[in-house]
């Protein structure tokens, strides 16, 4: 049954550009990008209880890294560019994360918030490199001499990368590191008592989370095609938090569902203009009060049937 469902899902994802109108192909790419960020954020927040309000900053680093690599070294295949973007983001994430280890809860959230601001500020002021507030046009990525210049091509790139990263996240929970994450999620104190080094695994979670978000940033750069520091504000970071809260903390399928629902809602509500934050705020509060565990937990009984 499970294999059938996965097969059907895979077929649906592959067939999508051939059956859906062009705009929905673009929208699906955005969902994939957001899903990767949500998984990355969830690895940090859902497993090791570290809430970040700065993931827009990580996304920005990955996006600018990929864009600048493509501009200055167009010969590099797009997949390598994405990996490098992710790696650069992970390095920054670790450099920032290691000293933040000692900080618990609220402090870490606020430190990440500050991080997001600093990243936007740095991008704005490194204008020789980033073109600052004017924004940076991202050329099409290339793979084996073939430019990814259509929505469909970029969608397939995003789908392939997402598939690999989802598989990685799902399998992570089967490894030693993943089990340590789960132990930390259940009880930090108990995990520590059973010999799990809280500090080491929190750092690891920070690095992995930043890597996922950095790769998503690269995808974001190619899918959107234009970057500016205004793109990566604190409200974007809050959107990512909404995704994992709505989808369900500590759940990979939940992250994907959360990303899909938030992205689609965002799209529908674009016409409602300034009602949009009102509705998203209400969703956030409603989830916290009435749907702890998010969609992942709410839908679990359906899955069992």
């Amino acid at each position: 049954m499970r294999r059938w469902a996965l097969g059907a899902l895979g077929a649906g994802v592959l067939a999508w550009p051939w059956v859906a109108p062009r705009y929905f192909v673009f929208l699906a790419s955005l969902i994939l990008v957001n899903a990767v960020v949500a998984i990355g954020l969830n690895l940090l927040s859902g497993y090791t209880n570290q809430l970040s309000f700065g993931h827009a900053g990580f996304l920005a680093i990955g996006a600018y890294a990929a864009a600048l690599l493509t501009i200055h070294a167009p010969a590099i295949p797009v997949v390598v560019t994405l990996l490098l973007g992710g790696a650069i983001t992970a390095v920054v994430g670790l450099a920032f994360g290691v000293p933040c280890l000692r900080l618990g809860g609220l402090y870490l959230s606020m430190a990440t918030l500050a991080f997001g601001f600093v990243v936007a500020e740095v991008i704005l002021n490194l204008d020789a490199l980033t073109r600052g507030a004017d924004g940076l046009r991202v050329p099409a990525g290339r793979i084996a001499g073939w430019a990814l210049s259509t929505d469909t091509a970029r969608y397939y790139l995003a789908a392939a990368v997402t598939a690999v990263l989802v598989a990685g996240a799902v399998n992570l929970t089967r490894t030693r590191v993943g089990r340590a994450f789960l132990a930390i999620r259940e009880s930090e104190v108990a995990a520590q008592a059973s010999g799990v080094s809280l500090a080491a695994y929190r750092t690891a979670a920070f690095g992995v989370s930043a890597f996922y978000t950095g790769v998503a940033g690269g995808l974001f750069a190619f899918v959107v095609g234009y970057l500016s520091p205004d793109a990566f504000d604190v409200f974007l970071s809050v959107d990512f938090v909404v995704m994992i809260i709505l989808g369900g903390l500590g759940s990979v399928p939940g992250s994907i569902m959360g990303a899909a629902v938030v992205t689609v809602l965002h799209d529908w509500l674009a016409a409602f203009q300034n009602f949009r934050p009102l509705i998203f705020g209400a969703i956030l509060i409603a989830c916290m009060l009435f749907m702890p565990g998010g969609m992942a937990r709410a839908l679990r009984p359906l899955g069992r049937r």
Partner: peptide, 14 residues
């Protein structure tokens, strides 16, 4: 028809 982009380029593109 108007849509809100909140001054973000990615939303303006979408």
């Amino acid at each position: 028809v108007y849509y809100d982009d909140g001054y973000k380029p990615q939303e303006a593109v979408a």
